[in-house]
């Protein structure tokens, strides 16, 4: 969300979702909801199947960690498997030429 400043666009064209103040609003909203549901954990009766579920806000923490891991691992994976967009083209054209 921060990189949209680099864009050369008139302020008039900026939509609601592109205004910085609205970003802040959205982030705040997210944090508030998280806190809310985290707190809710203490206000209902759990029926855990696994012991881990008894950890407070287990699902929230797990979700946060999992998401973080996915993205960072993905970034690492890129180093291994990313190729230019035309990677397969030359090969297949070479085959056609035969």
């Amino acid at each position: 969300m921060s990189d949209n400043h680099n864009h050369t666009q008139d302020d008039q064209e900026l939509g609601w979702f592109e205004r910085v103040e609205n970003h802040r609003l959205l982030i705040l909203l997210t944090v508030l909801i998280c806190v809310g549901f985290g707190a809710a954990d203490f206000f209902y009766h759990k029926h855990p199947h696994f012991s881990a579920e008894e950890i407070p806000a287990f699902y929230g923490l797990f979700g946060f960690a999992a998401f973080f891991f996915v993205v960072l691992a993905g970034a690492q994976l890129r180093k291994l498997i990313m190729r230019p967009e035309d990677y397969y083209d030359d090969q297949e054209e070479a085959q056609d030429a035969e």
Partner: peptide, 18 residues
């Protein structure tokens, strides 16, 4: 609650990452 926790904390993680 558990599902919303999972999802919203993950959204939070997205915000942090970005």
């Amino acid at each position: 609650i558990t599902q919303m926790q999972l999802l919203m904390f993950a959204v939070l993680a997205f915000v942090v990452l970005v």
